[in-house]
Simulated assay, not measured.
Amino acid sequence: MLDRVAAVLRGRPIDLLINSAGTIGPERQSTLDMDFDGFRRALEVNTLAPLRVVQAFVPNLRAARDRAGIARIVTISSQMARMNYAKSDRIAYRASKAALNKVMQGLATDLASESITVRVVDPGWARTEMGGADATVEVADSAAGVYARAWETTMDLTGTFVDYRGTPVSW
């Protein structure tokens, strides 16, 4: 499917690419009782798929950069992935998002010379199917914040991790 979409969009500029897919992972995801197939799936969805999407559309981002001087990649992550947040619940989710953060940090380094920015954004604990009814952030507020963070991204902000309000998040 990704290859078909990339083929349809071949040569067309993309100013902004947002990676927003994610999965919370398997029911059993403790360090002492892991569903390894579920963990593998979380890594595929949360870490590898966003990298594949970026790689598929780098030519389109380059085309936009040629036209406007800059192109942007924004990837949705989570504060739950911070290395200094020493909780172990939902470890497959946390680990896959931590790996995602590192991949995006690497992309920021690799694409900086091409004026393609990369930013990681935490959408907050939003009231989605994954976030649940107890979540504290309205979906509209989260989406508006992610959108604002995407368009404010400049080369000076490439490689940064912020929440939907723009507050820096430690890696």
Score class of each variant (00 low, 15 high):
L2E: 07
D3V: 04
V5I: 11
A6N: 11
A6G: 12
A7T: 07
V8G: 07
P13D: 04
L17E: 03
N19E: 02
N19S: 08
N19M: 08
A21N: 08
G22C: 06
G22M: 06
T23G: 09
I24V: 08
I24F: 08
I24Q: 12
R28P: 02
Q29W: 05
F36R: 11
D37I: 01
G38R: 07
G38N: 10
F39L: 13
F39K: 08
R40W: 11
R41H: 15
R41V: 11
L43F: 15
L43M: 15
E44D: 15
T47R: 10
T47Y: 12
A49V: 10
P50A: 13
L51P: 02
R52P: 03
Q55G: 00
A56P: 09
V58T: 07
P59A: 03
P59M: 03
P59E: 02
R62F: 05
A63H: 04
A64D: 02
A68C: 01
A68P: 01
A68I: 00
I70R: 01
A71Q: 01
A71P: 04
R72T: 06
R72C: 00
I73E: 09
V74Y: 05
S77T: 12
M80H: 10
R82H: 08
M83T: 14
A86R: 10
K87V: 01
K87I: 02
D89R: 02
R90V: 09
R90M: 13
I91P: 01
I91G: 04
I91F: 13
A92C: 07
R94W: 04
K97A: 11
K97T: 08
L100Q: 13
M104G: 07
M104A: 00
Q105S: 15
Q105T: 15
Q105H: 14
L107G: 03
L107M: 15
A108W: 09
D110K: 12
L111C: 04
A112H: 13
A112M: 00
A112C: 04
A112F: 06
S113I: 04
E114I: 01
E114D: 09
S115V: 03
I116G: 09
I116A: 07
I116Y: 01
T117A: 13
T117E: 11
V118S: 04
R119N: 08
V121G: 02
V121C: 06
P123H: 09
G124P: 12
G124H: 11
G124I: 08
A126G: 09
R127F: 03
T128N: 12
T128H: 13
T128R: 11
E129L: 09
E129A: 14
G131K: 03
G131R: 06
G131I: 05
D134F: 01
A135T: 02
A135E: 05
V137S: 00
E138R: 14
A140Y: 05
A140V: 15
A140S: 15
A140P: 06
D141Y: 10
D141T: 14
A143G: 02
A144N: 06
A144I: 02
G145F: 06
G145V: 06
G145Q: 04
Y147V: 12
A148D: 12
R149C: 11
R149N: 12
R149V: 08
R149E: 15
W151P: 00
D156R: 09
T158Y: 09
G159P: 05
G159T: 07
G159D: 11
T160M: 10
T160Y: 03
T160N: 10
V162A: 13
D163P: 05
D163C: 05
Y164E: 06
Y164F: 14
G166M: 03
P168G: 00
S170G: 07
W171A: 04
